[in-house]
Structure formats: structure tokens, C-alpha cells
């Protein structure tokens, strides 16, 4: 089959192409996941749209108390960004565990989120940070919480005519801390279990907690019960963390048992909550 190729220079041009070709088109940014699927012919698009020439799509800026990251910003740009390191050091830290330097040099944050691999490293921490994404199409532009953007295993809310433009991360003004940890066999591997936590504290302990367990389910999952239990804790220093969650969400994995994934997720959850809490205290 013939494959046609496009290099839009702006988001608008890209959206126009998407609008025209809809399901017959496939967007490629860093392609660090898509290239494998293309080679295996799992994905055989008629129209391949390369987003890498959209210069306006790669940026990191602070605006109105929020950090805004263009969807085409590479992992490496975020990892090395002085702004990110200053405002969200725990977020910057996550990147060194993603793939390898080569992958981070070319892979993009937008591609990572749109691929929606539950074992991905960015969604869990962005979810606890309350990040939103801006989804655009030829004539629309909408913001939605990342939490509702991700809908399942390799699935998002993106329709055929839509694409990601920007990731928006609110910067907490409260005394806060965050942490992400993953369990992976080797450095840079996809997670077999992961967890992220964001904690704000006040004089009476934890005022707000957000906790996500990643990798084990069809998608990263908020643990609202656990968040509620954490509420108000820690005024005397000690946290009582019981990181149990509904085990039925755990996916089959050919290499490790569901039981082990559960146990290890609990370790990760306990660790990230504790670390986020410590960081909040020091903030």
C-alpha cells in the first residue's frame, strides 16, 4: 500500500491534515513507540504526519502560576530544563529513568502521553500534580485533566481529528512535596509497578494528598480512599500508611505474578507517600 507523508510546520496545518484524513492518518512525533509498531505492521497508516517540524510545539514556560510544556518538547529538554528543575525538581528527576539518553533525546512528552502505555513514567506523576492537557482540532481547543484524558490501555480521549498541544502543570503554592518511584528490572525499563504521590501540608498535617498507582492496571489509577486516609495525618510527624487497593485492577503479566505486582506496588506507594511527605515538610 502506498503511504503518504506530511511535514506540517504549525499545529494548525497538522490539524487540517488530521481533519482531512481522520482515521487514515497517523501522527508521529518522536516515534519511540510508533516506529516499532510501524515496522511490525501493527500500524499501517495511509497518511503519516511528522510533527517534528512544528517549531511552536516545543517549549517550557511558566505562566500564571502554571508550568506549560509543549507537546513536542523532548524528554531530554524537560530533564535538562532549569525551570523544571527549579519548580518541579521531583518531576525533572523522573526523566532520567525513562529509556535511555538516545530515547529521551528524540521522544516527546506528547507522544508519551498520547501512546498511553500504563507502564509509562510520566502519567502517574502528572496525574498527582493535577496536570491538564490541551487537546486541539481544526476548529476546537479544549483543556481537560490528564486523569480523564487517559481512558485505558493504549487508549485516550483523542478522536481521529484531535491532537495534543500542551501539558499544563499547576504549581502548588502550599507547602508541598511529590515523589515517583518505579520498579523496573533494569535501568530505564518500563515499570512493572509504579506509584506517585503529591502531598500538601499545613499546621494540622496533610491537607491534600493525591496518590496514583501505575503500571499494574490498564492505566494509572488514583487511589482516592488512600488519599482520604492520609488527610489530616502527620501533624505529629508519623504517617500511618496502609496502601491497599483493589487487586482486581491488576493486569496479567507474563513475567511476574499479580500477587507480586500487588505487593511491590504497596512498597512503592508507601515509599512515595513517605518521600512526598518528607519533601513537603522540608519545602
Amino acid at each position: 500500500m502506498n503511504m503518504f507523508y506530511y511535514e506540517p510546520k504549525t499545529f494548525q496545518e497538522a490539524c487540517d491534515l488530521l481533519n482531512k484524513y481522520q482515521d487514515d492518518a497517523k501522527l508521529i512525533a518522536g516515534g519511540q513507540s510508533l516506529m516499532i509498531l510501524l515496522r511490525q505492521k501493527v500500524v499501517v497508516p495511509e497518511h503519516l504526519i511528522n510533527l517534528k517540524n512544528i517549531k511552536e510545539g516545543a517549549y517550557i514556560k511558566e505562566e500564571g502560576g502554571e508550568l506549560k510544556i509543549g507537546a513536542l518538547t523532548t524528554h531530554r529538554q524537560i530533564e535538562k530544563s532549569p525551570l523544571v528543575r527549579e519548580k518541579l525538581p521531583a518531576f525533572a528527576e523522573v526523566f532520567s529513568g525513562i529509556g535511555s539518553v538516545q530515547v529521551r533525546n528524540w521522544g516527546t512528552i506528547g507522544g508519551n502521553l498520547a501512546h498511553s502505555d500504563p507502564a509509562g513514567d510520566l502519567a502517574p506523576i502528572l496525574m498527582v500534580l493535577g496536570a491538564r492537557v490541551r487537546v486541539i482540532s481544526k476548529s476546537n481547543s479544549n483543556e481537560m485533566p490528564l486523569e480523564s484524558f487517559i481512558t485505558g490501555y493504549l487508549e485516550t480521549k483523542l478522536r481521529a481529528s484531535e491532537m495534543l498541544q500542551e501539558i499544563i502543570i499547576p504549581l502548588s503554592k502550599a507547602k508541598s512535596g511529590m515523589a515517583y518511584e518505579k520498579e523496573s528490572v533494569r535501568a530505564g525499563d518500563m515499570a512493572m509497578a509504579s506509584a506517585a504521590a503529591f502531598i500538601e501540608i499545613g499546621s494540622k498535617g496533610i491537607t491534600r494528598a493525591k496518590v496514583v498507582v501505575g503500571a499494574v492496571g490498564e492505566m494509572p489509577i488514583r487511589l482516592e480512599n488512600l488519599e482520604k486516609e492520609l488527610q489530616g495525618q502527620g501533624s505529629k510527624g508519623e504517617l500511618h500508611i496502609d496502601p491497599k487497593f483493589d487487586q482486581s485492577i491488576i493486569r496479567m503479566d507474563p513475567y511476574v505474578s499479580k500477587e507480586y505486582k500487588y505487593e511491590i506496588s504497596k512498597v512503592k506507594l508507601r515509599n512515595v507517600i513517605q518521600t512526598a511527605f518528607e519533601r513537603a515538610k522540608q519545602a
Binding site: G31, M35, V103
Partner: peptide, 12 residues
């Protein structure tokens, strides 16, 4: 920048 040339379209 170092990149993996198997994961880049030639046209990119």
C-alpha cells in the same frame, strides 16, 4: 544529540 537511528524516520 545521540539518537537510535532505527527509531527515526529517514525523512525526519
Amino acid at each position: 544529540m545521540s539518537v537510535k537511528s532505527c527509531l527515526i524516520l529517514a525523512l525526519q
